[in-house]
Design a protein around this nucleic acid. Structure first.
Lengths: 232, 232
DNA sequence: CGCTATGTTGATCCATATCAATAAGTGTGG
DNA sequence: CCACACTTATTGATATGGATCAACATAGCG
């Protein structure tokens, strides 16, 4: 793996605390690859051969059952995915595909486990990461079980607005078809849900969103830090 | 904390790999307490002061939002809960209450974090535990997003049957009211769902379940290891 | 034994899915 | 650059899963 890739990976919380020797041991077997859009990287059920790091682009984590499919999450740079499967040496629970042209680092899972076994700092960093992932899924599950689809959309928009810097106008990060799946609804229902938020000052034009009266939308959405705050 | 409690906690995967010195340091600040049924142990949003270990009884993890409530999971002996909040030093995302008379060990979270900081083996054990918790929630989310309530119930019954040893007859572990909440439906809908499974050979009498033709039920339920296998 | 919580059943309502048709983008090759 | 194909988004009509409301039955429990 080319030395030029080191720095941006090294700065990830997951890798920043380990010794140079261990980090280089990890990178020795790793390699970077560019993928076109809509390429399947992994399929659920396969053994976890590689820990993946997204350097650029974006990844859709999805699952299938009985002919149905749902988007579970989106991975954006710079972060890792399928860490849990790697450390547990268990099969992937989700499939992954590129959403756009993406640059991915592949680190052999056995190398990750080998360093994990001897490097306490790396183990602690993994705890931090897994703890965060776990809490993110719990929040997603609360969102699903406690809110209607209209409420999920409203809170999603408020979260995205915050991510985009808090301005009243921003753009959706991915196509509505996928947003619907992430939010656990059909595209048709999402289309109607956007209309359902018009009375609360939400205007949609393609991927562009305007939130006219944030107070008003919040009164309806009732965002809650224990569901919506990504930092906690 | 009385010495007599040590062994059963010590054998937990989470604590079995650490040195005696560290384990005793953890136990020094810990204490055991007996709680009656229906007692709130923690509330979501509170700082994570204690890591909890259930020695006997059972615990309901639940969440609330906007006047609604949902059961997220049930904790059975002998296992820990709210580990993620403890290691991240973050507020609880779920509330916990006893379902029956329960015996709980309370270990100060700061002690857990202190040992975690110096004991690599403990850190690795926590990775194992968190990885498993994370994967369990992912499976639960797939169950919720990919299956109808009837399918969730059918697969739940098959999982419980396996847990109970695989016999055709077994008893539900908790009341239907709570089961409905865990499965993400109303009690009325659960009642009807049980009827809806009669054509597949499911008979219900109070908390007692009989699965007349497992093949038939499985043809409907289509259990999948990547959702239903707790071991993977 | 009665009180209270839980479970069942029925009637109805509502949210969301499904089906179908159209419109609007988006990319491709001539 | 346009015409075409193809995917995505919207809109309408309808079906259905599941929630809600209400009445009643049942089972624990003091």
């Amino acid at each position: 793996m080319p030395e030029a890739q080191y720095p941006e990976i090294r700065t990830l919380a997951l890798f920043s605390g380990m010794t140079d020797a261990h980090f280089e041991a990890l990178m020795r077997g790793a390699y970077v690859q560019n993928f076109p859009p809509q390429i399947d990287l992994i399929s659920e059920g396969e053994p976890s051969d590689f820990l993946h790091v997204v350097l650029s682009g974006s990844i859709d984590l999805y699952s299938e059952w009985n002919g149905r499919e749902t988007s579970m999450a989106t991975v954006l740079p710079i972060s890792t995915f399928i860490l849990a499967a790697t450390v547990r040496n268990a099969p992937y629970l989700m499939s992954a595909r590129t959403l756009e042209k993406s640059r991915i680092v592949l680190i052999p899972s056995q190398d990750v486990r080998a360093i994990f076994d001897v490097d306490g700092n790396f183990a602690r960093a993994i705890v931090g990461e897994l703890g965060q992932c776990y809490r993110a899924v719990i929040k997603a599950q609360k969102d699903l079980k406690l809110r209607s689809s209209l409420e999920r959309l409203a809170n999603y928009l408020l979260r995205q607005q915050k991510r985009a810097g808090g301005a009243a106008d921003f753009d959706l990060m991915f196509e509505k078809r996928r947003l619907a799946s992430v939010l656990g609804m059909t595209p048709e229902n999402l289309s109607r849900a956007f209309k359902g938020l018009q009375p609360y000052g939400v205007a949609v034009n393609g991927t562009h969103i305007s939130i006219r009266d944030q107070q008003d939308l919040e009164r309806f959405a009732r965002p809650n830090p224990l569901i919506d705050d990504h930092a906690i």
